[in-house]
Nucleic acid binder design. Structure first.
Lengths: 158, 158
DNA sequence: CCTAAGAAGTTGAAAGGTGAACGAATGGTG
DNA sequence: CACCATTCGTTCACCTTTCAACTTCTTAGG
């Protein structure tokens, strides 16, 4: 039995909006990454530092950190090894679950964070936030919210 | 001489909007990539097929394709080698500039494109376009346009 | 012309990412 | 308690991306 349906192509407006969105993301990622380079950090590094610095006791379980930063355990494991070698974080055993580990922000990691954050924020302003009015930013946020919710609900489905 | 300035942190609204934007992008990329997997294509592959299929004579110079898809020449070269092995494209010499090469869409590449496109479009609808009203999509587009322009103007600066 | 500067693309090694398989530890169930 | 499914995090083999070096060709200037 055929269940073929005529494809529901995008209208011109939809296509334009979609392509702009994709393009902005790629270029934005590129710029932010570039602005972090002088500090020898990637966005991935930075993201992890942010999560740790905002968490209780400056530490997070590997799994939680992987979920929070939307990456696989495998990738995070490699990533943390690199950051450990760079002195930004340190692994620490978990008392309550001996399979588990904490990633802990080191003093040096914290200092790096504090040094870099203003530059990164400036970069986000320069390439994104300050380019649109607060109202437009609000609209943007409102438009993206249902999408974010949908995508969160999809995570790890068939 | 100190040129230190108090960092201009993001307001709560700005931060929320920004974080949502980043999160949407990561999750969306993940989903779209996943929806292409059954066809043995990555978004990078697909993007290249789209560019070729929309270009004159179904062919583009390597450099132009690299610029259009926002990747380095080196990366594109490896990428095209893989796609060539998969039979989707073929390299062809350029008469007018003997340093140059064309990437040409093959018959098989075209067929793949036609087979996959409806699914990909459906995926874009399901995870993005259809989740917001046409008005909201318009607002989103309007908000992103100045950002896109700014970023285009930044490409390859110091 | 001839030459030097530079553009087009490729290459190979090193770094980063992926996914399956693994050992260790946990926790619910009979 | 003993079992087995499940979770935690790492590791291995394999693939992709990056970066710098390189070849070949073009082009602008003397």
């Amino acid at each position: 039995m055929e269940t073929e349906t005529a494809p529901q192509w995008l209208t011109d407006e939809e296509q334009c909006a979609w392509r702009t969105h994709v393009e902005v993301n790629r270029m934005l990622t590129y710029q932010l990454e570039k602005d972090l380079q002088p500090f020898n950090l990637t966005m991935n590094d930075y993201d992890i530092l942010v999560h740790l610095s905002e968490s209780d006791e400056l530490r997070m379980r590997m799994s939680d950190l992987a979920a929070a930063t939307l990456q696989s355990k495998s990738r995070l494991s490699h990533q943390i090894t690199r950051m450990e070698n760079a002195g930004l974080v340190r692994r620490e055993n978990c008392e309550s679950d001996r399979r588990g580990l904490y990633t802990v922000l080191t003093e040096e990691g914290m200092e790096t964070m504090q040094k870099v954050a203003p530059h990164h924020v400036a970069s986000v302003r320069r390439h994104f936030v300050d380019l649109v009015s607060p109202e437009a930013l609000g609209e943007l946020h409102k438009a993206l919210t249902p999408i974010a919710e949908h995508l969160r609900s999809q995570r790890g489905k068939p």
